[in-house]
């Protein structure tokens, strides 16, 4: 039942008495609401026990390593926003995502996607310093290797087009998922326009 030998208990007791009142570090945790998502869950755990935050603006405190987390209490949203306004103002904007589509077996963009490029280039520069990831995808027509290379050609083509339009991110990452991550699941060797795409993330 109790894994600690008696001597160690005595030692710990003595240590706690000697260090009298010095509880050590103290922590507090507050769950915040998430836009467009139900609130998630945070489990706060140490060797003495655990507690869960499941509702926005619930808070748990932990005083030192030898005390269990306190039961959650509900805080007033307005006072949390006031107390932590500065911190919240420093949180970066969420990343932007774009989807572009291609001709069959080619790194040539469809006209509607082509038209989006200037807007995407402007969005990159509006977020400086920005990082851009381009992930190229293919439908299932052809071998794994062929489609990996096709996805990479698509991603690279998009990165080059954005650079030519004046987008100046601090970093660009072009990668391929080939036919392994379709937007629409299909059998092998199936032409599917929605899978011939590149996903762009602007961070």
């Amino acid at each position: 039942m109790n894994p600690l030998p008696r001597q160690l208990h005595l030692f710990l007791f003595f240590f706690l008495v000697v260090s009298g009142g010095c509880a050590g570090p103290k922590a507090s945790f507050i769950l915040l609401p998430e836009e467009n998502h139900p609130a998630g869950e945070v489990i706060i755990q140490n060797r003495q026990g655990d507690e869960r935050l499941t509702r926005p603006f619930q808070s748990v405190e932990v005083e030192g390593t030898h005390r269990e987390p306190s039961p959650p209490v509900q805080l007033d949203p307005a006072s949390v926003r006031q107390q932590y306004g500065g911190l919240m103002a420093s949180l970066p904007q969420p990343p932007l995502h774009y989807l572009l589509y291609f001709e069959f077996g080619s790194a040539q963009l469809l006209p509607e996607s082509e038209q989006l490029l200037p807007e995407i280039a402007r969005a990159v520069n509006a977020r400086r310093p920005a990082e851009v990831s381009v992930e190229g995808h293919a439908d299932t027509v052809g071998t794994l290797e062929y489609n990996y290379n096709l996805g990479l050609r698509r991603a690279t083509a998009v990165a080059e087009r954005l650079a030519a339009l004046g987008a100046a991110p601090v970093r660009v990452d072009a990668a391929s998922r080939g036919k392994n991550d379709p937007q629409v699941k299909t059998p092998d060797e199936t032409p599917e326009p929605r899978n011939r795409r590149a996903e762009i993330t602007i961070r």
């Binding site: 050590g24 570090p25 103290k26 922590a27 507090s28 945790f29 507050i30 769950l31 915040l32 609401p33 998430e34 998502h37 609130a39 998630g40 869950e41 945070v42 489990i43 706060i44 755990q45 140490n46 935050l53 932990v62 005083e63 030192g64 390593t65 987390p69 949390v80 932590y84 911190l87």
Partner: peptide, 20 residues
């Protein structure tokens, strides 16, 4: 991880504060 407890996080948004 913090000096007094570890947080397991399931898809969410939070504030954490550690005072010495």
């Amino acid at each position: 991880e913090t000096p007094v407890a570890t947080l397991g996080i399931r898809g969410t948004h939070l504030i954490a504060r550690v005072e010495p």
